[in-house]
Design a protein around this nucleic acid. Structure first.
Length: 941
RNA sequence: GCCCGAAUGGUGGAAUGGUAGACACGAAGGACUUAAAAUCCUUUGGCCAUUGCGGCUGUGUGGGUUCGAGUCCCACUUCGGGUACCA
């Protein structure tokens, strides 16, 4: 009987659905295991073979854990709101609701074909009101919270109001946008609008005037992780810096906790490192500089306090609010010209063309340690958004300051003994400090760093600056608050209304605030939100939801917030929703959350390292602080699957002809390589007939063959339509079956490695499945031998149990598949029931359809998914003798068998006495014999 | 520039510091077949010897630690990923 994978796979996919095999419920009697995939955004192109790689790995772990007796939660859903989905709709001229629904249906069809064990009853879609209800709800909670650094957690904003009423801002240690100072009396004297303005400074979700990444082509602002090298990740459009009033999430408040949490989770070091860099903790010193002939004082941030004696100029960011204060009338025109020029340059230009530019402000700052006057410059190499937007420049020990000093001929004072700064700055934090002012000389204030190492000097300066109240020790983070507004249509509406310009949250009972259906949903280059076309929706919402005493006056044109939330809003807590997807009362019930706790295994790509994986950790920590979830970190273990690249094929057309020459012969001709559809190439051999039909241009193509075949060239490239190297999993499933696809994707190499998709090896795993099948297939049915297994067979089986268990526990699926092949090779044509029973269970995570069929054929009850993973019986693995490698001076020459209990003395005597040894020793004296238990005897001559 | 990671046959890749190249593909030869497909068997890192069962060499390069290094340490080369005026 043939291995008819098409019939088998269809049969079992229907059967699983009918039986509800993969439906899960909380079950206190069994331990839980939560396996999560990063849910896809349903793009128009459908899945290619790269997408299922991680899904297959997680599916294997899910099935394996289930066989081991765990209650496994393994859900799937769609990240269906956001830019990519909307861009696709615009490109195809359809409404995003329509394309999204269509794309989801296609994804589902493709996913179903691969035989995943998802519990589809728990599916979530971020664009459905039942889901985004809780996205909006979380936003309201963030609006109504502030971050208290004293207790290192988020607290209700009412606590903050109480605090202000008692103490004003005195002694408050909270995350804030600006440092505000007021007394309790002043607070009480403020009107509502003024108080709201103050509170906005502390809210975790806040409305602020921010320097944002504005992308005119996409008609929206973007978060930092959505921009790379001045271009939008989505679409590659230019991005400019602009101040806009936007909703933001105070992610920066959680910087330290996000950093600390990394030490407690099982992620790869490289991913943790990426997040650490992104958070960018830097310990330094803030120092206050006064300005000559002025009352103005300003603060700078530096990590190199030790270089204070090498400061030869100061630099302000062009956007700094100090610029107008420090510009003298003489320099006014020059500064204004410079600011205009800076504004004109796009972010892209600034990055690609890194020229040194700047202008002198006319003012001088006073070095707090020497009293020396230092010119204050303005330059765009200093960023307004980091530190204080002002720096002390030490050209001798900072390459950027060095370039600036050289360009404007400013002095350079080296501070490290023996360093040469004639060509470049000395940036390393090492060496011995020199050139500090000394007693008796001008500028000496009783503080010198000479003779200290750089590290000692930094510490000494910090201490001195703190004691003398010249500044303070300060930790800065690179991590910025997340900009949360998008001037787009396809996203969650904000549950926010305005009264006299002050934003308020809609009452909780009015959630979800549903996205209205509008015809003209396209973004604008000026940033007018598309929801501006839904004026009646806005008014209806306000009239229905807002109670009498807060009802807004009719003068307001847009009573509602018209921006929508960004893509990451919906993906930040989806893993919580899977725990309790149909709950209408809360995001997740205490009971469901208490049972499922957190994600045990999260599988997905590294591309989310600085986006989703930061945002959801932040979101989860916030919900944890408020007591809505029971775990501080959402993802205990995270595994990154590698990217599957495309393997393109080429044909070689002889110039100005329609004749194509095979790879091996192309050197004799002048040829142009042309991409050819990989789907008409097999093992690099072109199907010439299919090629002629592929494109009308090649209808009359002629071929110069080698050995009767046309051999194509190949290259590894990105998988994309234009390279004709996209492989659709449907085609693979159609040709080889889902079980082969699953097995092959795992066999391709380590899960984390990036690798090209290459169908060349797929026959191998397909043969393996056929062999597994045909060993027990016979005639029109199956036959199993009831003979007792031999010791050899049992040893073989139990070796496999041990290896598979180890490999799956360590996510080494490629070696697991190999181990299975080896075992089957060793067993030969064995069809003993006792062996096949266990083998079938062991293969189930990899090839579930095939195993169900065999399980049924063996007359077993129920589904093989509910069987128990076999235990390795070590007693079958015990050897009667041990084989030792015998080496001479480290080179292995032969092997010898010894009884398990042989002593080292016995082994040594036998080895030295053997004929083989005599040949290698050649009568020379033996210096040493090293015996490694059960492995090696090395004789040193 | 900075921070990670990698480098092993024609290919994908194995190898707790212990016989490098498992397993698979491809290739070559053979069996079965009228033929093809499918299946099975043999060989397959390189060099030398193959009328001798063998020998030498070999994991990007150069050094080191070790009885023993693909694996650990130092320096370098190349490639991939992340990040970028973050003071």
């Amino acid at each position: 009987m043939e291995y008819n994978f098409r019939a088998i796979e269809q049969k079992w996919q229907e059967e699983w659905k009918k039986r509800g095999t993969y439906t899960v419920r909380e079950d206190a009697a069994r331990p839980k295991y939560y396996v999560l995939d990063m849910f896809p955004y349903p793009s128009g192109a459908g899945l290619h073979v790269g997408h299922p790689l991680g899904y297959i790995a997680s599916d294997i772990v899910s099935r394996y854990k289930r066989l081991q007796g765990f209650n496994v939660l393994h859900p799937m859903g769609y990240d269906s709101y956001g830019l990519p989905a909307e861009q696709y709709a615009i490109q195809t001229g359809q409404h995003p609701a329509v394309t999204t629904a269509k794309n989801i249906a296609r994804y589902r069809e493709q996913l179903d074909k691969i035989g995943f064990c998802y519990d589809w009853d728990r599916e979530v879609r971020t664009c459905e009101p039942g889901y985004y209800h809780w996205t909006q709800w979380a936003f309201c909670k963030m609006f109504n919270s502030y971050y208290d650094h004293a207790s290192e957690k988020a607290r209700p904003i009412d606590d903050l109001i109480d605090y202000f009423e008692k103490n004003g801002s005195e002694g408050l240690n909270a995350a804030q946008s600006d440092k505000l100072t007021f007394t309790a009396a002043e607070w009480k004297a403020m009107d509502t609008a003024a108080q709201q303005k103050v509170l906005m400074n502390y809210r975790i979700a806040y409305l602020g005037d921010m320097m944002v990444n504005w992308c005119p082509k996409l008609g929206t602002v973007l978060a930092n992780d959505e921009v790379s090298e001045g271009l939008s990740i989505r679409g590659g459009f230019p991005v400019e810096q602009k101040v806009m009033r936007q909703w933001c999430l105070r992610v920066s408040a959680y910087a330290q906790r996000l950093l600390d949490g990394l030490d407690r989770i099982d992620w790869t070091d490289s991913l943790k490192e990426t997040q650490r860099n992104w958070i960018g903790r830097s310990e330094g010193t803030e120092m206050v500089f006064s300005v000559k002939d002025s009352d103005v004082k300003f603060t700078i941030f530096t990590t190199r306090a030790d270089t204070i004696f090498g400061v030869t100029f100061m630099v302000l960011a062009p956007e700094s609010e100090l610029v107008p204060l420090l510009t003298t009338s003489a320099q006014k025109q020059a500064v204004e010209d410079y600011l205009t020029a800076v504004k004109k340059r796009t972010e892209r230009e600034r990055i690609s063309d890194r020229r040194v530019t700047g202008v002198f402000s006319g003012s001088y700052a006073i070095n707090p340690l020497t009293g020396e006057a230092i010119p204050v410059w303005i330059s765009d190499y200093v960023l307004a958004g980091y530190g204080t937007g002002a720096i002390m420049a030490v050209p001798a020990h900072d390459s950027r300051d060095y370039a600036f000093a050289k360009h404007f001929s400013l002095p350079i004072i080296p501070l490290i003994e023996g360093c040469d700064v004639s060509e470049e700055s000395f940036d390393a934090k090492e060496g011995t400090v020199t050139n500090s002012p000394v007693a008796g000389k001008q500028g000496f204030k009783g503080f010198s760093l000479n003779g200290l190492t750089v590290k000692e000097a930094i510490a000494a300066t910090k201490k001195f600056v703190s004691e003398q109240k010249l500044g303070q020790v300060k930790v800065n983070y690179r991590l910025r608050d997340a900009i949360f507004s998008r001037q787009r249509y396809w996203g969650e509406p904000f549950p926010v209304y305005y009264k006299e310009g002050v934003p308020y949250m809609l009452p909780e009972e009015c959630l979800p605030l549903e996205l209205p259906e509008i015809k003209n949903f396209k973004p604008t280059e000026t940033g007018e939100p598309p929801l501006g076309h839904a004026l009646s929706w806005a008014w209806d919402t306000v009239n229905n939801c807002v109670t009498e005493n807060t009802k807004i006056d009719n003068k307001t044109v847009f009573p509602l917030e018209l921006n929508t939330m960004p893509g990451f809003a919906g993906s930040s807590a989806y893993y919580l929703r899977y725990m309790d997807p149909h709950n209408e009362k809360s995001l997740v019930s205490k009971q469901a959350n208490g049972y499922w706790q957190d994600v045990d295994l999260y599988v997905g790509g590294t591309e989310h390292a600085t986006g989703h994986l930061i945002y959801s950790r932040f979101w989860n920590k916030f919900l944890f602080d408020l007591g809505f979830v029971c775990q501080d970190e959402p993802f205990k273990k995270l595994v990154n699957q590698g990217m599957i690249q495309g393997r393109s094929n080429f044909v070689y057309r002889i110039k100005d002809t329609n004749t194509f020459v095979s790879l091996g012969l192309k050197k004799d001709y002048d040829v142009t390589p042309i991409h050819v559809d990989v789907n008409i190439v097999s093992n690099d051999v072109l199907d010439t007939e299919a090629f002629r039909n592929w494109n009308p241009e090649y209808k009359t193509a002629e071929f110069i063959l080698e050995d009767g075949k046309y051999v194509c060239g190949w290259a590894v490239e990105k998988m994309s339509k234009s390279m004709f190297n996209v492989v659709n999993p449907d085609n693979v499933v159609d040709r080889y079956g889902a079980d082969t696809l699953r097995l092959y994707e795992m066999f391709l190499g380590p899960l984390e490695a990036s690798k090209p998709w290459d169908t060349n090896g797929i026959d191998g795993v397909h043969r393996f499945l056929k062999k597994f099948w045909s060993n027990c297939a016979s005639g029109e049915g199956f036959s199993f031998s009831d003979e007792a297994p031999t010791a050899e067979e049992l040893k073989c089986l139990h070796k496999l149990i041990k290896k598979l268990t180890f490999d799956i526990d360590h996510f080494s699926f490629n070696t697991a598949v190999s181990a299975f092949m080896i075992c089957l090779n060793e067993l030969g044509k064995c069809n003993k029931r006792a062996i096949y029973h266990d083998l079938t269970i062991l293969l189930t995570p990899f090839a579930p359809h095939l195993c169900e069929e065999i399980w049924q054929a063996m007359g077993e009850e129920g589904s093989v998914c509910d069987a128990s993973w076999p235990q390795c019986n070590e007693s079958f693995l015990v050897e009667s003798a041990v084989t030792y490698s015998i080496s001479f001076n480290g080179k292995t020459r032969f092997t010898m068998d010894f009884p398990v209990d042989a002593t080292n003395e016995q082994i040594q005597a036998q080895v030295l006495g053997s004929e083989g040894a005599k040949k290698w020793i050649e009568g020379k004296p033996i210096r040493k014999v090293v015996i490694v238990p059960k492995k090696i005897v090395n004789v040193v001559i």
